[in-house]
Amino acid sequence: MPDGQPVVFVVDDDPSVRDGLDSLFRSVGYAVATFGSVQAFSLHRRPDRPSCLVLDVRMPGPSGMDFQAELAGMGDPIPIVFLTGHGDVPMAVRAMKSGAVEFLLKPFREQDLLDAVRAAIERDRARRSEEAALTELRARFTSLSAREKEIMAFVVVGRLNKQIAGELQLSEVTVKVHRGQVMRKMGAATLAELISFASKLAR
């Protein structure tokens, strides 16, 4: 498994379906790990890479739907593609509302499945890069001094230097210097960029 190669996790209690999906996903260049039950998958330590979960709805033990709820409860964001031998509309609606990428009936069309998995991986990749960016932003924000954080809070709500100086009992020049530091440390080229960083941090 080359580093960064996307991983598809397959959970299906049918060994033949499992092996088939394993072979299919490997043939299109994904890394694959298969499991016979959700318990086995839960115990697995997942690598830090873009990934998605192809999950059979009906299995002995907790069902795929139950497991989706469990993952959501734990805050696990892995995108899920459901496969089922016989699903009904309410089941599909419930799965999609709970954030599933796709709900496919067995026997599925290969292209539908591959499209769904690609979309799921993309979703995970986007989430990961967003998360990485946010982590970076948080690190930058932590590097600000207490005074700089204070001034940034005023800047991003549109206060002028003069107003900030008045509020904080500082000279305008001092505010200007701190403001320059904030822009530099946060890596913001423009005020608009700084405001967007601030709103991401506040989320």
């Binding site: 033949s16 088939g20 299919l24 043939s27 031998g85 016989h86």
Partner: peptide
């Protein structure tokens, strides 16, 4: 019927996955 549909769709899903995989391995 529901149960049987499941019993049949299971091997069919296996056939779809394995068959397509085989084509791709041969085309590689």
């Amino acid at each position: 019927t529901a149960s049987i549909a499941h019993e049949v769709s299971q091997p069919l899903a296996g056939i779809v996955a394995n068959g397509n995989a085989a084509l791709r391995w041969l085309a590689a």
